[in-house]
Amino acid sequence: MSWQQYVDTYLIGSGKCTEGAILSAAGDGGVWAKSAGLQVTPEETGRLLRAFSDPSEAAASGIRVGGRKYMFLRSDGEAVYAKERDDGLVAMRTRTALVLALYSKGIVPGECATAVGRVADYLRQHGY
C-alpha cells in the first residue's frame, strides 16, 4: 500500500478527518503523502515538530498549517492538539514520520485523534 492510500483510506476515508498528511519527522520538509488541498510548508512542519518536545513556542504563537493559524491546546510528547473555532488539528509523531490530520465542525476531535493514532501505531509497529 502506498503512503497516499494511508492518507486517503485511513485518515480522510475514516470520515473523522477532513484533510491529512504523512510528513517526514526529519525536519527536512519532506511530504510522504497528503490530501489534495493541503499545503504544509517546511517551516510549518518544523514548528509543529518542535511543539512535541518544547511546546513553549506553540503556546505563545499558535501553530500554522496550510497558512491557517490554530490555537495550541496541548502536547504530551506523542501528540499535539490545536484548534481554531470549531476546526482543529491532531498530529502524532513516530520515529521517522509525522501523521497530521485536520478536522472541521461536526467531527469529534477524539475521533480524529483515534484515526491519526491508528496510522501512527501502524507506522511504529513497522519501524517508522
Rank of each mutant, 00 (worst) to 15 (best):
A82T: 09
C112D: 06
G30S: 04
R74W: 13
R68N: 12
K69G: 14
T45K: 00
D121S: 15
S75A: 14
G88C: 01
S2I: 03
A59P: 04
Q5E: 11
A33K: 04
S35M: 07
L11Q: 07
V108I: 09
S24L: 03
G37S: 11
K83N: 09
Y6C: 00
W32Y: 14
C17H: 09
P109H: 09
G127Q: 09
R85D: 14
I22P: 00
T41Q: 10
S61I: 02
L11W: 04
Q4R: 14
L49T: 09
G106F: 08
A60Q: 14
R95I: 01
S35K: 07
L38T: 08
A51Q: 01
L38R: 13
L100E: 11
R68G: 07
E19R: 02
Y122R: 06
A79Y: 07
Q39K: 13
A97P: 00
V7A: 07
Y81K: 05
A58Q: 01
E44T: 12
A115Q: 02
S2L: 01
D76C: 08
A21T: 08
G30R: 05
G20N: 12
T114F: 14
R50I: 00
R50S: 08
E57P: 14
L48F: 01
R47K: 15
E84Q: 10
L38Y: 15
I12E: 04
S35D: 04
V31T: 15
V80G: 07
R74M: 11
G106C: 10
G77A: 10
Y6F: 12
L89F: 11
L11I: 12
G13Y: 05
K69W: 11
Y81T: 14
A101K: 10
L100H: 06
E44G: 09
A113N: 04
G117R: 10
E19I: 00
E19Y: 03
K83E: 13
K34V: 07
V31C: 12
A115N: 05
Q5A: 07
A60C: 02
S2K: 11
G30N: 01
A115M: 06
G15F: 06
R124T: 08
T45C: 02
L123G: 11
E57N: 11
G106Q: 07
E44C: 05
Q39I: 12
L73Y: 09
R64P: 04
V90L: 01
S104I: 02
W3I: 00
Q39M: 05
I63R: 01
R95S: 09
R47M: 02
E78K: 10
C112N: 06
L100M: 07
A60P: 06
Y10K: 02
D76M: 03
V108L: 06
V7N: 07
M71D: 15
A33P: 10
M1N: 12
L73H: 10
T94R: 01
D86V: 05
K16V: 03
Y81D: 09
V80P: 08
I63Q: 05
A91F: 12
V108P: 03
K105V: 05
A36S: 15
S53L: 06
M1K: 11
S2G: 08
T96A: 00
Y122S: 01
E19T: 01
R118H: 13
A36K: 15
D87A: 15
E43R: 14
R124G: 01
G117L: 02
A101N: 12
G106K: 06
R124Y: 13
M71I: 13
P55N: 03
I12A: 03
L73I: 13
T41A: 14
W3Q: 03
D121M: 08
Y103A: 03
Y6W: 12
R64Q: 14
L73F: 08
R118D: 11
D8F: 06
